[in-house]
Simulated scan of single mutants.
Amino acid sequence: MTSAIKLAIVGVGKIVYDQHVPAIAARADDFSLVATASRHHTIDHIPGFTSIEAMLAAHPDIDAVSLCMPPQYRYAAARQALAAGKHVLLEKPPGATLSEVADLAAFAAEKGVTLFASWHSRHAPGVQPAKAHLAAHVPTAVQVRWKEDVRQWHPHQDWIWQVGGLGVFDPGINALSILTEILPSAMFLTQATLSFPENRDAPIAADLHFQDAADIKVHAEFDWRPTAQQGWDIIVTTVGGELRLTDGGARLWINGAGQALAQEAEYLSLYRRFAALIRAGQSDVDVAPLRHVADAFMLGRRKAVAAFYD
Rank of each mutant, 00 (worst) to 15 (best):
H20L: 10
Q128V: 10
W119N: 09
I5V: 11
G249L: 11
P60M: 07
S38H: 07
K111E: 04
V144W: 05
S38D: 14
P203C: 05
A76M: 09
L115F: 04
A135V: 01
P94K: 10
S283F: 04
A26Q: 15
V12N: 12
L194D: 05
F210R: 06
N255L: 03
Q191G: 09
A76G: 08
T97S: 15
L176P: 04
G231H: 14
K6Y: 03
S3P: 08
V127E: 01
I254V: 14
S269I: 02
A275Q: 01
G13A: 14
A25N: 13
V10C: 14
H137W: 03
M187N: 08
G95W: 10
G258E: 11
W253F: 14
A307K: 08
S283Y: 06
A8R: 06
L7V: 11
V65I: 15
L189R: 08
I182G: 07
D247T: 08
Y73M: 10
D44L: 11
I46V: 15
S283D: 01
T238L: 06
G85H: 02
P93G: 05
E100G: 02
A275W: 02
T42W: 13
Q19R: 10
K6L: 09
A64M: 03
T190G: 08
P155W: 00
L89T: 02
G167C: 07
T190R: 15
S51E: 11
F274A: 02
W232G: 00
I234N: 01
A35M: 07
A108Q: 02
Q211G: 03
V287G: 00
G248P: 03
A117Q: 03
A192E: 05
A202R: 04
W159L: 10
S121I: 03
L270N: 13
G112E: 12
I278Y: 01
D201C: 11
R39H: 12
S195V: 09
V285D: 01
L194F: 05
L245K: 03
M187W: 15
D149G: 07
I43S: 10
D170N: 09
S38G: 08
A58T: 05
P70G: 01
L252M: 06
Y75K: 12
A83L: 09
K14W: 14
T36M: 14
Q229T: 12
A306E: 12
I173E: 12
G256V: 03
Q128M: 11
V16Q: 13
L115I: 00
